[in-house]
Design a protein around this nucleic acid. Structure first.
Lengths: 227, 227
DNA sequence: CCATATTGAATGAATGTTCAACAAATGGTG
DNA sequence: CACCATTTGTTGAACATTCATTCAATATGG
């Protein structure tokens, strides 16, 4: 199962582990490894996207946020566009790795697997104001930028297929009536919709209530599998 | 029930009906009523948002799209920001009027009302590539712009309350177990999530499959009310 | 003729990119 | 180890471009 993870680009997370090795002290020093500096700039980009939105995110703001000079971003990333693509790729990789790990840890029971995938979606490390805001900023631009499209739906075709497969299995073991593909779409759309509400800061939606609603859906769609 | 509609700002839709009265011929003529011209510019703004996204939408592009000169937008709307707010307000009003009308036409049966609300969400007049793309463009900027926040969640607090009320009624008549508030959130989040998929142009989601999934949700959540 | 609408060029501010100068690390050499 | 040369990273100012806004001139309808 981890085999399917490897084909993804994971330079960013490699750089992350390197950060941990070298410690935070060096991050501010003059010399830092290329990957560390790039990651630092990517984090500053996420900050800026979250705070100011896509349209208002400037190179200067990113550089300031990282505590570095103006020209530095064009040195590490060729252009603003490439910085943004690298940032999106980083977030995509992180999200993918997260749900794949969650799935792997869930064991073999499909009901448990589905439950863990739902939980993974609302995990603090993935689902927090800063990152959700950055996601939304990208989504807003995705349809008009072909380069973003493949990366911007954090949940990709493979993710969707996993959902369909799980729903198919549950259908057989529970004797449910509906089309697994249809119910899988309903489920994943609801998860994205709950994210959307969290992103927008709708008052009535918190991480807890969102998770509660997701579980209510599971319970009503698969009554034999969830309490 | 229609009483609750009136307090909303509906200048835009009034202007729309005026368009119909004066016909399309005058739209290109030198003189057109203030409201008609403003609506024309708003439509051009939606076009631009859909085609180029928020960040790339320029005053020049809007003016070109409307077939008018560069300075015209600042004459009718004071600034770019006010043009965008007016556009968002227009879309918000249209969406609100649409679901309220649908609800009104559904009669008194709550199950029927809920079904009609779902249908309304996927009606062609509301749910088409152009408008969905424009919505997404606004959503992407909403969290970082306080002015947008109130208007950008097309489904507002009152809409959500209607859902909760309907779920409460169905719960009583059907003897379901769950918390109406929780299931209402799941339902409305799923609708938004399906919109999101349509917005992003995910291959596996069309207006038909989205509607199918929404209905599957209704059937599994309220089995006694929907075949 | 007056009020109003419209034009399009001028203006100025914001911002992405470039680049010459500078600093720091690296590595080879005596 | 000391010294220098080369590579690599970093800075900040200069540059060019894009774009919202302004406004004087012009056109239009009443």
């Amino acid at each position: 199962m981890l085999e399917t993870v490897t084909p993804m680009k994971t330079e960013a997370s490699d750089a992350l582990s390197e950060t941990a090795q070298k410690g935070d002290a060096e991050r501010r020093g003059r010399k830092a490894s290329k990957e560390v500096r790039q990651l630092q700039l990517i984090e500053a980009t996420i900050d800026s996207l979250a705070k100011r939105g896509y349209a208002e995110t400037t190179m200067a703001d990113v550089a300031d946020g990282a505590g570095l000079s103006r020209g530095i971003v064009n040195f590490h990333f060729e252009s603003k566009e490439k910085l943004l693509i690298a940032t999106l790729q980083h977030m995509y990789d992180e999200y993918s790795a997260h749900w794949r790990t969650a799935l792997q840890k869930a064991g073999d029971d499909p009901a448990r697997q589905l439950q863990h995938l739902v939980w993974a979606d609302f995990d603090r490390s993935i689902c927090n104001k800063r990152k959700l805001a950055a996601w939304l900023a990208f989504w807003g631009e995705a349809k008009s930028r072909p380069t973003y499209q493949a990366l911007s739906s954090s949940r990709d075709a493979y993710y969707q297929q996993v959902f369909i497969d799980l729903c198919t299995t549950l259908k057989q073991s529970g004797g449910y009536a509906y089309d697994p593909q249809v119910i899988a779409l309903a489920l994943s759309a609801m998860l994205e919709g709950l994210w959307l509400r969290l992103m927008m800061g709708t008052e009535d939606t918190t991480r807890e209530t969102a998770l509660q609603s997701a579980n209510a859906f599971l319970a009503s769609a698969f009554p034999k599998h969830y309490d």
